Simulated scan of single mutants.
Amino acid sequence: MGKTKINWLSSPVDNDYISAERYLSLLFKPRKCRKLLQKLRAAPMSEYPAKDILRASRTAMSEVAAFDWSHHQCRSGSGLTFGHGL
């Protein structure tokens, strides 16, 4: 079985920021949340290996293996396309 090419979106979509705002609102007061979201929108894109992101999030690998990834993928003509997922 060949390796599937993954095509990342060139920039975050509005839903990514909405999700980030929802998460941040659980951690911070509304004013702080708005300021963080403004900084997030202005920040340049960056890329990290998935293993580093998972390690930083303290996500157990058993949770990642059990996750149903099929709901977070969409096929394009040249492979799988994923959103950035803030």
Rank of each mutant, 00 (worst) to 15 (best):
H72C: 12
A20H: 02
S78M: 10
A56D: 03
V13H: 04
L24P: 09
D52K: 01
E21S: 11
Y17H: 03
L54Q: 08
A20R: 08
R75S: 02
Y17Q: 08
E21C: 09
S25W: 01
R41M: 04
C33I: 09
D14M: 00
S76G: 03
K29N: 14
P49M: 02
N15Q: 09
L40N: 00
S78C: 01
P12W: 04
V64H: 04
S78T: 03
M1K: 09
S46G: 10
L24C: 06
K51E: 07
Q73H: 05
Y48K: 13
M61Y: 10
A43K: 10
F28Q: 14
L26F: 10
T4Y: 12
K29E: 15
A20F: 05
S62P: 05
S10T: 03
S11R: 13
L37Y: 04
N7M: 07
V13P: 00
K39P: 01
S76I: 06
P12I: 00
A65R: 08
D16E: 15
Y17R: 05
S57H: 11
A42M: 09
V13Q: 09
D52T: 00
E47Q: 11
A50E: 04
T4Q: 15
K5S: 14
L9P: 01
C33E: 13
H72D: 07
N7G: 10
D52Y: 11
